[in-house]
Amino acid sequence: MTGPRRDAGQAWAVGQPRAAAAGVAPASSVGSAGGSIYDLGYRNYEGPRLGRPHAIRALFAQTLKVCYGIGRGGRAKLAPFILLAFATIPAIVAVGAFALIRQVGGGQFAEEASPVRHDTYYEIVATLVTLFCAVQAPEALGRDQRHQLLSLYFSRALRRSDYALARFAGIAAAILVFVLIPQLVIFFGLVLSADDVAAEFGREAEFLPGIFGQALVLAGLLGGLSAVVSAYTPRRVYATTAVIVVLSVTVVVSRVLIDLGARSLATVLALLSPVDLLSATNALWFGSRPESRVVFMADLPLEAFLAAAVVIVAACVGILVRRYERIAA
């Protein structure tokens, strides 16, 4: 929507005060608080107004930035970047080790024996991703409630549901970046250190659907759950604790149930437990054996876990939208 002033002329026929104000440049400086000795006067904005789609994009981009502490001083960057570093270091070390071993000619053997591979990486960083969600989702959502910013957002070119969706998408994107960076380090590290780069790329490319598929499920599931918890828990400390509990308590419960012999109940819980679900989808994407004992024992096809994950993501988004439709602003 460009030039709204003119094409909306009949809708808001104000005109007069604007015309009167145009070109007026009083020399007064309000507040006289600084060193300004001249004042250009107020200028009206005549440029484009991009409306709701732009507002949604801007909010999404800002959420991604908030999750990494960008634009909020050095301290806010500490937690996300330290976690990201911890998640990436094993990948860098593994890639370095491959490169060395390849030079002495033991490449194929080293790759198969290495504990750091595309299909095992989710298990390696699971705890770090959980911590990242627990610390950063409350930043993205709780901040607006703590500092009463919702009334400013909702009184702009956004709908309440837009706000909820843009924030969720931003959190999910931040998690996506978090899990993709180490995977891509391995990917490019292996490809570029190979003797035959093209052949290695062809071999590695088979992992790409798995890498991206698992990252998407992970981002949606953990992002959705931690966003819902954060939306209902403005206080950061409580939100962080609550996210950790929600993301891990079901695992503990299902383990206990199995040990007690209540297998069918454990199976149901496995379908609700994010850790087990992700273990199952990881096995599905990479065609490997699931790490989770519960998934292994539950007599269900792995696709069922993927379906359950999708349902949970959809439910989280629904709850989130509903929460922001009703929250007082």
Binding site: G47, R49, L50, H54, A55, A58, Q62, L152, R156, A157
Partner: peptide, 9 residues
Amino acid sequence: HMAEISGLP
């Protein structure tokens, strides 16, 4: 940021 949420580029 608030200006962008109001639709300004």
